[in-house]
Structures are given as structure tokens and as C-alpha cells.
Simulated assay, not measured.
Amino acid sequence: MIYTITANPSIDYVLQLTTLTLGEVNRTVSDVKLPGGKGINVSRILKELEIDSTALGFVGGATGKMFENLLSKHDLKTSFTQVSEDTRINVKVNAVKQDEETEINGTGPDISDQEKDEFIKQLKKVGNGDVVVMSGSLPKKISETFYLDIAEMIQKQGADFVIDTTGQALLDTLPLNPLVVKPNHHELAELFNTTFKDNQDIIDNARKLLDKGAKHVLVSMAGDGALLVTKDHAYHANAPKGTVINSVGAGDSMIAGFVGTFMKTNDAIESFHMGAACGSATAFSQDIAVKEKINEVYQDISIKELS
């Protein structure tokens, strides 16, 4: 089973305006409310790939009920921990003529020690053959080591894990052997305080993450495609042609495609192919990609061995 953890889920209130004028009354052209959160995005892509997952996280208050109602339309298996304070609302304002998007993100609820303990109890059932995907921001009063502590716990129980994070937080997880890490090329350069001249430079630095313990490294490179780097080989996936509509969730989708496919096939190259397709399909969609779009984009991606 794949478990996704979204510690700080949200209702994403997306507003579309012709123009945004600060200090004045603005009227929307359209608006939509979506269940938000990086782990939620992973579970939604897995659903499109017909792969089971259970979404975990903290949900509370009137907004928490709305969040669960919005999510119910996607028919996901969930096991949320109920908390006393409200689930946050994130506001995204898209001013079409100005070609600008402004985001205002809520901080999320305070999580009590008792609520955190209730959440941790659910992870006692995780074991051999399971993968836990942890991603997204943390609510207030949750330790910055929350995900790392969970990784240590489930590893002892025999499960694999993925933490979608960057910087020192990523480096701290590597000795625990995450199944896959996915920095983009800018984040990878920042990790080692360097710049890249070509793909070989990226591959060489990605292998440093393998040397520190990661099992697979995915490096997304926007319009230049993506790389999969293993200890013995490196592979490139082209960026398929299409109009990027919304890059939010593309990285989550790539992780979902890789992890879900790897769970079924244990084939890193095929998992990379599907991950690249899921990521691009979401970038070409207004919301998280659907199965038909993923299958269409998959046909336009080719995998080439580089070394």
C-alpha cells in the first residue's frame, strides 16, 4: 500500500480576474474551490493510474468538513486525523490580462500533542512492501523533524519512504535510504553550492545524493525534460510539446507516477517514463491530470540512456 501524508492540507480557492487592482474592489470572472495539498495531489494521480493509496493528514473545523466534501468527489481512500482547529484556506488570484498569479497561503491549524499522537498511531500498521510519501508544509507547533522522525519509524517497520523536500532537510533523510528524491536542477545546484554547464554536471551531482543514501534520483529541468540517475546509469526524458497551463502539482504528479509504477513493476526506467508523463500531463492541465491526458502525453515521451 502507498500512504500519502499531507500534514497541512488546504482548500485552494482559485479566483480568475481580468485584472487585479490593489486597494479597490475587484470582481472575479470565475472561481473554483479545490482540495489542496502535495500528498493529496499524489493520491489523486495514483487514483488515475488505478493504484490504491490511503491519504493521511490533519483535518479540522468547518473548513475541514468542506475539504473532505471536495475530496470525496475524487473517490480517494482517506484516514484523516481530526483536529480542533480549522483546515487552512489558500487563495490563488489569477489576473489574466496581467499574466500574473498571486498566492496567499494560510498557516494552518495548531496541532496538539494528543492530535499528533493520534496521527502517529495510524502509521503503526505500515510495514514491509509499503511506501509512505511525505510532502508539503507543516502546521504550526509541529517540529521541523516531523517527517524525518516518521521516516525513521517506518523504516524500522520495513517500509520505504519518499520525502519531497529540499535543502538540509533533504540531506538529513539520505542516510535512511529514501526510495526516490526529486530536486529540480536549481535545487540540486543549491544543495552543493555550484552551477551546471551541462547534463553531465547534473548527473555527477545527482550521484552525490546516491552516495549519501538515496536509491534513485529524479531531476526535473522544466523545458529541458528530466533525468533519472542511478548508481550505474543515467537516463533523459524529453519535455513533450504542449502549453503549460498550471505547474502546481506537476512535481507531485511526477513522484506519484514514479512511485506507483515502481511498486507494480520494480522497473526504474518504466517508472521514470510514467513519472515524466504524469508531471507533464498535469502541467498541461488546469487541475491534476486525468488518465486520458497522462496516456496521451506518455506517447510523446522517449527515454534515452546517457551513461
Results as ranks from 00 to 15, higher is better:
180 V>K: 02
184 N>K: 05
181 V>L: 06
242 G>V: 06
217 V>K: 01
218 L>K: 07
211 D>C: 09
174 L>S: 08
217 V>Y: 01
208 K>R: 15
188 L>N: 01
197 K>W: 02
182 K>D: 08
227 L>E: 03
208 K>V: 11
192 F>K: 11
219 V>C: 05
192 F>A: 07
227 L>A: 08
179 L>R: 11
246 N>F: 13
179 L>G: 10
190 E>P: 02
227 L>H: 04
216 H>P: 09
229 V>I: 15
175 P>V: 15
238 N>K: 10
221 M>V: 10
222 A>F: 01
213 G>Q: 07
210 L>P: 07
228 L>N: 09
178 P>G: 10
205 N>T: 03
240 P>T: 00
215 K>C: 07
206 A>V: 11
184 N>R: 04
204 D>L: 11
228 L>W: 08
195 T>L: 01
205 N>R: 09
180 V>T: 11
194 T>I: 12
186 H>T: 03
187 E>G: 03
203 I>G: 00
178 P>I: 07
229 V>Y: 09
244 V>G: 05
241 K>W: 02
241 K>Q: 15
198 D>K: 04
221 M>G: 10
203 I>S: 00
211 D>H: 15
183 P>N: 08
187 E>P: 01
215 K>I: 12
190 E>S: 15
228 L>P: 03
204 D>A: 13
234 A>P: 06
191 L>Y: 13
209 L>R: 06
180 V>P: 04
215 K>A: 08
245 I>S: 03
180 V>I: 15
229 V>L: 11
185 H>R: 10
198 D>A: 02
243 T>S: 06
196 F>N: 00
201 D>N: 09
185 H>T: 00
177 N>R: 14
174 L>V: 04
204 D>S: 11
229 V>R: 05
